[in-house]
Design a protein around this nucleic acid. Structure first.
Lengths: 214, 214, 214, 214
DNA sequence: TATGAATGAGACTTCATTCAT
DNA sequence: AATGAATGAAGTCTCATTCAT
């Protein structure tokens, strides 16, 4: 039997050897590329293994409990990278509107640093999460829900502090998310896409939408 | 011989009997429901046939040239419905900002009238269009591109007329589209979703984003 | 129920109305064209119906007991035509070697008069007959066997009469048949095929092979 | 991932493990038997898998890129065997007529050694090659064309050297091929078929047809 | 720890055939 | 006598997953 039966894989997410961790990372990286390039539906283990330079799909099944597990890892990886990139940029800002701007702009800037990461995540989330069938999907949904809830809370807090005008925070957060994702998808297709310019434009749009009227 | 041979299927989209048209409509309706509920990947002929009360997937293959053909029909049907619903509401408005508001609000109102239609279309478009592999995908992509281009042109025109302030029209149109789609996806999952309220909120957001500063 | 149940179709091959006979002939003609053009495997009822200008495959099933029945009819039709064309030409000859030459040359000439007939028959015979599965196949086999046997008998007779030299008549007949069929197949593909020239050449070959040495 | 991804399958025909080669050979052998027995049309993956003692058709799809690939392998295998058997026998002869005789006789002798090989190849070639639809078919057609062209050239050379009399080399080669194939088909059906005798008879026939008159 | 091979469920599609009208 | 619609079996192919080595 493999080092970790599918049971244990679920129970003990940690405690991996260095080499195993490396393989997982390698596979996740390949998966991100393949998903971004071919879309979720065509991101088969076969293609991912080939991209990773692996000779068999068995390796993937060996390291991950299943496709859902791999996809969860893909999303987690992208979130980790996104957080590492965006958080310092957002936290460097002192005003609410500054943070909103930084959030939007750094999100799009991320697209230039890691062109495949966000498109891959958008693909996965729109295909796996949402529909609540099976554990992993629910896990995604809850994670996203939590992140969104935190953002909403932040916006509400800013509203109370008088930094933002009145509006429905939840709708605003969803709108911002949707607008960014739409640009991400666009970027994945349009080679001449200028992320910096688009980021500034989008930030401007939502700045006007949230700003208190003087 | 199928209702329409694969050759003729491409050549002569019209000329269907009443009963065949009815079956096609029934299948498309079932497909819309299944796609909205299970997502594009799990919207198999089997599930769609079962939902439509059909005894075999062969019936679907009999009436449609293939999965792509069915999906094209799904998108076309949703667009037909959406256009019938939104166009009069948008065209009833006389100002640019009124039209923008009507566009957004009627788009979300549509969600209440046909809760499955927009989610299904978003699913299909994000999975079939986009990556340009094969004729039908390209067809979608071009249709969407054209629609988007028209909207951009409309916005630019309004800007020139002084109805909207200065901003990048393309980014704005994409942002609006993305924001609406995000709410559509949200609505598909959240039973308590109030489309009217969300529509008003979203319209407000983009009204502020586009309005000339007084 | 149709005019003839599948049972009756087998039992009463005759007694058809004029119009029914016409339809059958039309379908057989279409089948011959399709088989010659696409090969046996791709000669589906759909293609045949389309070629015949029929709107449904049901018509074919209505007029023929099944695919095998249609194929039998195809072979019978080609044999009828071939016999009508070749027999007078063969019987006009008075010598054995003249008849052999006439047989070969008229067979290839037939290819020019009815370019689809022989290729179609070769297709059907090599795919349906031979393998003895089911009644119709056996029927074919026997019919061919009988025709071949008659030819062998004729050759033996000519040998006894001293018109032909000594050789195994059966092998000779099979060889002639095979050589002609190979040229038929060739003709079906090669647009510049000159049937008259090839016929003369082939007749010459087998004339030398059968002629008594002086 | 299959043993060879469809990409690699085309690119790297070699580089197979021993066990995979064995499976492929086993499947090809089963295919040859099934084709010879049931004909090309009924030689389905299901029947072939059953004959090979395999539990599912998936195994075949795993080892071959598709049905065309398997059929190509079948033809290649038969040609390999035929070449190995016939070439030494033909090349051992020093005269043109000796080589022709050896060609015909060894071809029929092969029928006794491997009774299913030639019938299977004839089946495949007459069904897959011929009509040029798709890459693999064209590949076959070209290979056969080349072989035939070489034979024609050889015959012409012998004619120039005065070994053969005057006749159209192309027609002669096609006739020989057709005659042999007809006997091959005959042999597949007739249990009492004596390949050696038939071979001698056929060789005699074409010897007389090609021999210079003294 | 990894892999090659196999598996088997399930997908789409094609086709001859049936049947009510 | 004909037709359009439907059927269902059968076919090829793809994949995630398993397992012995």
């Amino acid at each position: 039997m493999g080092a970790r039966s599918s049971k244990r894989k679920q129970e003990a997410p940690a405690g991996r050897t260095f080499i195993e961790e490396a393989r997982r990372a390698q596979i996740v990286a390949a998966a991100i590329e393949v998903i971004a390039e071919f879309g979720y539906a065509k991101a088969t283990f076969g293609r991912i293994a080939r991209r990773a330079g692996l000779s068999s799909t068995g390796v993937i099944s060996y390291h991950f409990a299943g496709k859902d597990d791999l996809m969860r890892e893909v999303v987690a990886e992208v979130m980790r990278v996104a957080d590492g990139y965006m958080r310092p940029r957002v936290e460097a800002e002192t005003t609410s509107s500054g943070r909103l701007r930084a959030f939007i702009e750094s999100n799009l800037a991320l697209l230039e640093e890691f062109p495949r990461h966000l498109p891959a995540m958008v693909e996965v989330l729109s295909n796996v999460a949402g529909r609540c069938q099976g554990e992993p999907a629910r896990e995604f949904a809850e994670a996203m829900e939590k992140a969104t809830a935190a953002q909403i809370e932040g916006v509400r807090h800013a509203q109370k502090a008088g930094d933002f005008r009145e509006f429905d925070a939840e709708t605003m957060v969803i709108a911002i998310r949707g607008a960014i994702d739409a640009l991400v998808v666009r970027a994945a297709r349009d080679p001449g896409f200028d992320a910096a310019v688009r980021g500034r434009e989008l930030a401007e749009i939502f700045d006007r939408a949230t700003r208190r009227t003087p």
